[in-house]
Nucleic acid binder design. Structure first.
Lengths: 340, 340
DNA sequence: TTGAAAGCGGTACCAA
DNA sequence: TTGGTACCGCTTTCAA
């Protein structure tokens, strides 16, 4: 049993396909007699007809769909981005095509190409492998196709970027100010290209304070919550152990928090923990997490707005929205006073 | 600057459109001379041509897209479902169209209708408002369209359901066995239709133990983390306060955990907390959460597999996969011993 | 081995 | 106020 088409409706109502189209689309500029409209509508509901969005899209040129590429569905920070995007595009009558690359560089490039086939009205990308995806991206954006990236790229497309420089300097100053001199860094990021400036500021702050950079205190882990746990375990096994842990995101910080607890250490009395993202749960953890707020939800909303606006006005110049991350101090950081 | 079409490639390569189609699709059953293929491929890359997926879909009948409807993007449980689905469909070469209804009954029904227009190859639905969405759903599934629901419905479609009965009875027995007689229930669920059996078992267990059902101990809250926090605050304000809190999901449990902490109570010494879902973070919270595992990731995978299989074999009988939720006891529950 | 042409299900212009 | 029809970009017979 096939789905009914416009023709089926037309036949049943005894009108032409054009008339069905007029009635169904409700275009007010084509006058249709009340009587005809009635008949068509009856046929529509009788057959349970719904126009084929693909055909409409093919003909009209737009698909009412926005594509979103996310590196990793495990990280709550990305969820909040998705939320922001989904909300915003939906408000404007668009649907969301979601793709994740599972942090696989090959897949990221492939996916970019695949997305191009779908002729969506716009694309929102949180790229992880900038170098690798460069060609595909520039190709996509070449003809003024609405694309916005949420990564700190230098590509010639609209961008919404969270800038971590200042906030990272602040969190380091905060920790240093509390007397911490051995600050571990759990750097579990999908691709190192991504958070380089946070790493840079971490190191600058250390040397700026006259401290040496101890490679043993930097742990490159995976992106899963247990990776954060394991990284923290490794770091805590150092002697002397770090008295503060900077964690690349809240998700891993949860794992770190657990590891710390299992080692019989209290936060913040024995060890301080600070992280990035400040996702919704950060304030509710035990203890509430000191975190650098990057506000994924807002990033998502901004990105969606930008790209939706570009659909309307293709002539717009390239825009670059900076959202300053902001340090939120809670109870997971405190004065250094552990005997070691 | 428009995107190049098949015709453009054909013209540049000096062949017919059909030939381009053959080469691009790489269909081995149509022999193409190496020389021609070469020419076409060169034209393709020169023009940067990518076939229009909408046209392909319109013509060939399938869209390689699976739709997923989720009630609430805030709840991590749903995220794990999304993950499972996304992974699975992607493995099979499908894309994912994600829609959330933000727990709005009207939107749920509308969305269902809208999804129907898109002629996706299959639909995976986690409905919240069963009664309200009934018509739209049955209409959708009417013609053997591949639909699977993750809700405990009686509709005549494939279903993957987590059954909570046994596990809920177990968790109640667990709490009761620990000596708790005042067990609060934070019931922050999008739609009450959904978790009725958990509520039923909660009440049955109470009466089964010779305990009265105290309506003051049941808090109907919202689905956000702060709703869990507020609900717990309200419950803790009762006199005498509950000595255990059963929370409808991990997300709200995080909020509850915080509220408990702010009241100066220790978990589990002063109060026990147990919840549902056992999302990834449950084991890492402080203390690790006793939770009923419903395994969203697995639910998502199963649902996707089911529906993908149905695409292949439309004749399959309706299937109903039950996944038994399973009690995972951790450190957030302990013996009742508070002086009150 | 390649090309011509008929659709897939709509939209929108032009005529009637 | 309604109908005829060209076309969106592709796939797939059928012929050549």
């Amino acid at each position: 049993m096939k789905r009914p088409t416009q023709s089926d409706v037309a036949r049943l109502a005894g009108v032409s396909r054009a008339t069905v189209s007029y009635v169904v689309s409700g275009s007010s500029d084509v006058p249709i007699s009340a009587e005809t409209r009635e008949r068509v509508l009856k046929a529509v509901s009788q057959l349970n007809y719904a126009p084929d969005a693909r055909a409409q899209s093919l003909r009209s040129g737009d698909s009412n769909t926005v594509g979103l590429l996310i590196p990793d569905l495990h990280n709550p920070h990305y969820w909040s981005i998705v939320q922001g995007v989904e909300e915003t595009v939906r408000e404007q009558g668009y649907d969301l095509l979601l793709t994740s690359t599972s942090l696989d560089p090959e897949r990221e490039a492939q996916t970019l190409a695949a997305l191009s086939s779908r002729r969506m009205d716009a694309l929102i990308l949180t790229l992880s492998f900038l170098e690798k995806s460069k060609t595909a991206l520039t190709r996509l954006a070449a003809n003024g196709y609405p694309v916005v990236t949420l990564s700190n790229t230098s590509f010639n497309v609209d961008a919404v970027v969270a800038t971590y420089r200042t906030a990272t300097a602040q969190i380091m100053a905060h920790l240093l100010g509390l007397g911490h001199t051995r600050i571990g860094f759990i750097f579990g990021v999908g691709s190192k290209e991504l958070a380089t400036n946070r790493m840079a500021v971490y190191q600058e702050s250390l040397t700026g304070a006259g401290l040496a950079i101890d490679p043993d205190l930097i742990d490159y882990s995976g992106p899963r919550i247990e990776d954060g746990y394991n990284a923290a375990q490794r770091l805590l096994a150092r002697a002397p152990r770090p008295t503060a842990l900077l964690v690349i995101n809240d998700w891993l910080a949860i794992g770190a928090l657990r590891a710390v607890g299992e080692n019989g250490l209290r936060v913040p009395e024995d060890i301080s923990i600070a992280s990035f993202d400040d996702t919704e749960m950060a304030a509710y953890l035990n203890p509430p997490l000191t975190s650098v707020r990057s506000n994924g939800h807002e990033l998502g909303r901004q990105a969606a707005s930008l790209v939706l606006e570009r659909i309307q006005k293709p002539g717009l110049p390239i825009r670059r929205v900076q959202i300053e991350a902001e340090l939120v101090i809670r109870q997971s950081t405190g004065r250094e006073r552990s005997p070691l």
